[in-house]
Structure formats: structure tokens, C-alpha cells
Design a binder for these strands. Structure first.
Lengths: 412, 412
DNA sequence: TTGTATAGTTTGACTGCCTAATTAAATGCC
DNA sequence: GGCATTTAATTAGGCAGTCAAACTATACAA
């Protein structure tokens, strides 16, 4: 049929111009290794089932991995009723195959964890962070110090294979540059390469909100989900997003800024200079600001933490004004979470962060308010869970990043 | 090293439990085919470069595809300066290899397009839709009728290989069920399978907001992006999201509901029954509602469209009240778009939909307001573009879906 | 002409995976 | 205890897909 018969002649073609998958799928070798690590202990049959590979292939790949010292055979825990047939042989990661360090630098404390190839925690350390703005050189020294402290805690003779570092602010994961960080003097710092040169080891860096999501994806509630959001409540409100089992770093590779979504046009003043940001209602400085007014604390120049504790105590004691402060913050938080649900429809929202002691903010009220503010007829409400782990979450998230890196290098 | 040396023993393993990629990557055969279609005309060398394949492999695959009648050799348009060496031979898809139909059913009009394998438009049709609620049987008949009309327009002898249907409401792409649709009497209808049985052809169905995103991904501005959002403004406010070159259908496979994000706590009443939804400020019914008050049209029971036109005309004539209506709607829309930017950080936001004639709503003001409401220091503002195509966009999006389906079946 | 540059094909080998047959290691039944 | 049964894992043989390298094809330039 000649072209002239066509009503439209599309010489530019149609369809997406970019390849769909990121480069190519992981090799079966790597998939097998990761399935073993994800399971803890798993027999070959089960690997074949999970990965839709033939038993022959699994045998071949696992033999290679065992020879390479990456996995090992291991007794499988006995079930109650032992079935007939040849008993399966368990496989597990050779934990000592590699060691990695994940660290988090912030303006409160620096922390680090040492993980082995199986993800076991070998050691950790937390050091206070200087409250002042810091030079790049200082940050590098702090990183080195906290790594050393964690390695010391883990015991002698550990040589980490890879290192991952997380810090707040705008971090470009791809280029490894810190575009902006609240406590750093300089901007647009190629921190990854600087640290790499200093430590003579491969380094990755990422935004701390992303690390939180990675921590949940690797070690926490998100492991069985291919799709969830992690909201962190601290100084600001951060968000990490996992989509199709992968961290979504946004167009530019930075964390998502839930704190600066608008929940009220011309609303409260945010420290970013705009009005109506969620952060301006929920973050600690917003609460402190109201506490000043409500509790006649205006003349005191106590630090924010103390002031918040005071406010919380008063609310608990029945102070109505103090209660309204938390109640309002809670309602706005609910609106923000409802927006996340409406825009993403994640399978789960995890609330994470240090401030979970302010129960008022994360009480049942907030959760039910979130559901009330979400329009999803006929669908079950999106579960919202509070996940409070210790100060080491971020470092563990960085550890996951480092582990992934090490896996890429060792397994391929 | 014995296990007892470890500080934590993680028998449950670590790392994501689900496979990262969706099943497996596309075959090279399919990648080659899709690259040819995406390019329009492309020589083998370029295919090898783009897909990182050896020339030998490209030769083999293209030979197969030619033999299968899926692509063909074609003259390559001459550049101005002809370089030395053997001139490349162009490849293009054999447009006649397959034909598909994409249709959209709504409460205003039904439309359909006929596309060939190259994505060329062979024919189309639009029919008015009955304004009343419809039974499943009626919807099926309408679908059949609009398909026939489009096929008639395309000419004789066309047998579509696959069909894709889009409609508003909650559509589960995976199961092919319509959980809820504004104009359908029944709920939870297995529409895909019903249509399949009726037409004796493979069918896919999807939400109309998703189709819009697919239309942009296949034929529009989104082709060169791996990451963008499409916002559609009609009765409601829908959103489709492309992430990593793939449509993000949310946890349940429905479209995202931008219209019901909260931009004002305890704000205007939305038809969903909640308060402060973006839709309650921006959708046509919200404008009409205010027009009633502002323009003393309360006694008239004219239809919404006429009322909106009146309002728009008055605003153009300088009526201050009418102007404030559009101005307010524009500001809230800006806040909603700013939230999308803040939460997703897409590479581009496309504004799409029928109502683009209400210039006031999408004027420069809205775009600059969007940027003003977005906190992204040091980063260039997210581009927001208005994309007005005709009434056939949705059908074309459905066509893309059908084309993808046909490709899967024919190319593998 | 002949040289050179670029596009595309042919050949042979290799990798990775699969099917099918075989071996291994347990239980249950007689 | 011995043997059938059942499930796990390995081995053997083969096929599909890809690549490197050598080769052919087709243009322009000198």
C-alpha cells in the first residue's frame, strides 16, 4: 500500500524514545545471590521457583557462587513435620565475603554502622556533631572519624569494601555532588569523589530521606512491598519513595520535599520563605513558634528541644492551648499524608523519625484524619504505620546502599 | 568465623523480597523493533549504537523481522553533505503488519482511532454519548458501534489485531475490571473480558487519565522523557504519571486523583463530600457554582458549558468579579501543580484536556505562580507546558496501549 | 584507477540456559 | 531390613542468542 493512502504519515515514528529498563536486567547470577540474601537461608529448589529458573541453572550458578566464596551451604531449620524425599540443602550468604560501612552526617550527631555481606550489624558508633557550620574539610574528617569509630567497635581486621554516606540537603546521587547542605559552608561540593580519594575506597552519597526509604526497603517494613512511601519527621519533613521496588530519586536525584507541599494558600510562614508549607505547621520550629505565644515563653531563649518538651508536658497535663497546638499540627500532617496517598496511591506509608515521642502528633487521630481526608471510594484505606527505630536507621540505610554497591562489584 | 562472633544474626536475610525488574527485560528482537518504530527510519548502524548491540546481531535480528514482515528497508532521507563510505540503509516498520483500534467511552462523546503498526492514523470517529447512566450491555454496544464507525472511516478490509478501551472512573488494568465509572449503572464489571468475548479479539482497558499519559509518552511531548506528569483538566482533575519510562498506575492500578488533593484545610466543598479538594476550586462545577453567585445566574438552569462560556466572556469584557473567579481558580491550580512538583520532581508537567479555552486558568500567571509556590533552591523551575490536542487524544492513548499489546503478540 | 571510509554480512565460537535423564537422600510400608 | 516412593540436586546434551573478526558492499576522493 503506497504511503499516500495513509491519512497521517508519521516519519518521526512513535513510542517512547528512551529504553524502558535501566540498561539491562540484573544477571541471573546476581538475582540468585540477592534472593539468597533476602531469604536468609533458602534451598535451591525454592530459588528455582522464585526466579523461574530451571534447577539445572540454579545448580550451576550456586556452584559458581560457592566457589567464589560468596555463598555457602548451611543446615536448613527443620519444620515440624518432615516430608518424604531428599531433604533440601539450605544456602546462605557467606557473611564474611565483604564488609561495608554506612554513615550519616547531620547537625546533631554523626553515626555509622559496619555491615557484613549478609547485612548483619558488626559494629556501630555515634558521635556528637559540631553545632556550627562546617567546611568541606571538616566534614571529610568527621566522616573519617565516625568510620574509624564504627570499625573499632566492630573489631580488628575489618577492611570495608565500599562506603556510603548520607546527609541532609540536596544531594545529587548520580554525580555525587552536594548541591546544598544546611550545615555546610560551601555549596556544590563533589563530596563523593573527595571522600573516595581520601579513603581510597568506592563511595556513594545520597540524601538522608532516601536512605530512610532504603533502610525500610532492605531491613524494614518495606521489604515485602514493591511500592511505598517513607515520611520522616524531624527538623523538616522529608519523604522517600519506592516505586517498582526501586527508590525514586525524582528528576534530579534529590529527596522529595514533603515539607514544602502547600496545604494552605497564604498560610503560615515557612522558613523557606513561602507560605502555607506543611512544614510551617508540623516541624519542630513551627511548634516552638506557637509555644512562644501560647505558653508565654517569649522571653526565654531555651533551645528548641527543651521548649518542645515543655510544650508536650503541658499538653499532657491538660493545658488546652498546648493541646490545640499539637492538634492543629496533627491535622495538617494528616492533610499532607492524605495528599501523598491521593497522588501516589502507595501500598503503605511509613512514618519515621526521631520525634515520635510527641505522641500527640502521631496518635490515632492523625491516622484516622488521614483516612478521612482521602477520597478513595470502594478502596481500603492506605495503611499508615509508625516505625520508630533508633538513631542508626540512616546509617543502616547508607549501609544498604553500600551493600548494594559491594554486591554490584563482587557479584556482577 | 563462627556465627557467635556476630553482633546481630539476621536469619531473615536482608534486601528487597520482590524482584526488581518486572519479570524480565524485553527481548532484543522487541527492543530493535521498538527502536525502529520510535525512530521512524533508522539505519542498522544506529540501532547497534543505540541498543549497544553488535552489528552482527542487528543484522540477524533485522533479517528475521523483515522476513516476518514486521519491518522493511526504506530509502534514508539524504543529508546535505554526503559522507564517504557505504551509505546506510534505512529501516522502518511495515505499517500494514497489524492494525489496532483505541477507543474512549465517556459521558460526552465516544471516540475511536484506527492505527497501523507504525502508529499512523488510518481512521477515526466520534459519536455523541448518551447523557444518561448506562448499563454494561449498552456500553458494550457503544464500544462496538464506535469501533465500527472508525473502521468504516479507515476504509475496507481492516481487521484490528487488538483493541484498547479507556474510560473514566476506577479501572483495574490488571484484572480488566471497572470498579466504578461515573456513568455506568453497575459496579465491578469485568468489562475487558466481556468486550473480548464480544469482539473475539484481545482487549485491554485502562483509566482515561492513564491514557492521556500514554498518548504523551507515545506521540507527544513525553517521548524523549523518562519521567513526567500529565494533568488533565475536565470535569475533574486527573493525573497520569510516567516514571522510569513506564506508566505508574499506583498501588491498585487506578489513575491518580490530583483533584482530591487538599489545598486548604476545611476549604470549599467538593462533590466528593470532602472539603478543601483542589477540584472544588478548579473544576468546571466549582466555577459554575461561583458564577451562580457572582453573575446573578441563580435562577437560570442553563447547562454548565453555557454558563462557563458566559463567565469567561464576562471576564474578558472586564467584569472584575468574573475575573476573580478565574484568578482564584488559577492560584489554587498553581498550588496543586506546585505540590506535584514538590512531591515527584518530574522532568515536565503537561497540562492537557479539553478546557484549555479558559485561558484565564492556564495563563502565564498560573505557570509563574506555580514556580513561585515551589521551593527548589538552586534548581531550575520544572517546566510546565500546555498541550492542547483534539478530542482524539484519549483514543490515541488507547491506541498506544493497543499497539503495545499487538507488538507484544507479534514481535514477542 | 586506487585508496579510504563507512555499512552491512558471514562465519565460527562461546555463553547461558533449558530439557531430560540420572543420582542422592530422605520416609513409609511390607 | 529392604524396597518403593518422593523430593532435591546434578549431569549430559543441545539449542538460542550474541559477539568478535574477517569479509563483502558501496560510496567519495585523489
Amino acid at each position: 500500500m503506497p504511503d499516500t493512502d495513509l491519512k497521517t504519515e508519521d516519519l518521526d515514528g512513535c513510542g517512547p524514545l528512551l529504553p524502558e529498563q535501566d540498561s539491562q536486567a540484573k544477571s541471573n547470577r546476581r538475582q540468585v545471590f540477592e534472593a539468597v540474601r533476602a531469604s536468609g537461608i533458602i534451598p535451591r529448589v525454592e530459588l528455582a521457583r522464585q526466579l523461574a529458573l530451571s534447577p539445572a541453572t540454579v545448580t550451576q550458578i550456586t556452584t559458581e557462587l560457592i566457589e567464589a566464596g560468596l555463598i555457602q551451604e548451611s543446615e536448613l531449620p527443620r519444620e515440624g513435620d518432615s516430608p518424604r524425599g531428599r531433604p533440601p540443602v539450605g544456602l546462605r550468604v557467606q557473611a564474611t565475603a565483604a564488609t561495608v560501612v554506612g554513615i550519616k552526617i547531620s547537625d546533631r550527631s554523626n553515626s555509622a554502622v559496619v555491615l557484613d555481606m549478609a547485612g548483619n550489624l558488626l559494629g556501630s558508633a555515634t558521635l556528637p556533631a559540631p553545632p556550627t557550620a562546617r567546611s568541606t574539610e571538616e566534614v571529610l574528617s568527621e566522616a573519617e572519624a565516625i568510620i574509624q569509630a564504627a570499625l573499632d567497635d566492630a573489631g580488628p581486621g575489618i577492611e570495608p569494601q565500599t562506603i556510603a554516606l548520607g546527609l541532609p540537603g540536596m544531594v545529587d546521587f548520580i554525580t555525587g555532588r552536594v548541591l546544598w547542605c544546611p550545615f555546610m559552608e560551601e555549596t556544590d561540593v563533589p563530596l563523593r569523589d573527595l571522600l573516595q580519594n581520601r579513603l581510597h575506597r568506592p563511595v556513594r552519597i545520597d540524601n538522608d530521606a532516601n536512605l530512610l526509604a532504603l533502610a525500610e526497603l532492605w531491613f524494614g517494613e518495606g521489604r515485602a512491598l514493591d511500592n511505598f512511601a517513607v515520611v520522616s519527621i524531624e527538623h523538616g519533613l522529608g519523604m522517600g519513595l519506592v516505586i517498582r521496588n526501586q527508590l525514586h530519586r525524582g528528576g534530579m536525584g534529590h529527596g522529595m520535599e514533603l515539607g514544602h507541599t502547600k496545604v494552605q494558600l497564604d498560610g503560615a510562614l515557612c522558613r523557606c520563605g513561602q507560605r502555607g508549607c506543611l512544614e510551617a505547621y508540623v516541624a519542630d520550629y513551627a511548634l516552638v513558634r506557637e509555644a512562644h505565644t501560647a505558653l508565654n515563653l517569649g522571653h526565654q531563649s531555651t533551645c528548641a528541644d527543651v521548649m518542645l518538651e515543655t510544650l508536650y508536658a503541658q499538653a499532657k497535663d491538660g493545658n488546652a492551648l498546648a493541646r490545640t497546638i499539637f492538634a492543629r499540627a496533627g491535622r495538617y500532617l494528616a492533610a499532607g499524608l492524605a495528599n501523598v496517598v491521593t497522588l501516589y496511591d502507595p501500598a503503605l506509608i511509613l512514618l519515621s523519625g526521631d520525634r515520635l515521642r510527641y505522641d500527640y502528633l502521631y496518635a490515632e487521630d492523625v491516622l484516622s484524619e488521614t483516612h478521612a481526608l482521602t477520597y478513595r471510594p470502594g478502596r481500603p484505606p492506605t495503611p499508615v504505620e509508625i516505625h520508630a527505630w533508633g538513631d542508626l536507621v540512616w546509617a543502616r540505610g547508607a549501609g544498604a546502599l553500600a551493600l548494594d554497591f559491594a554486591t554490584e562489584m563482587r557479584v556482577g
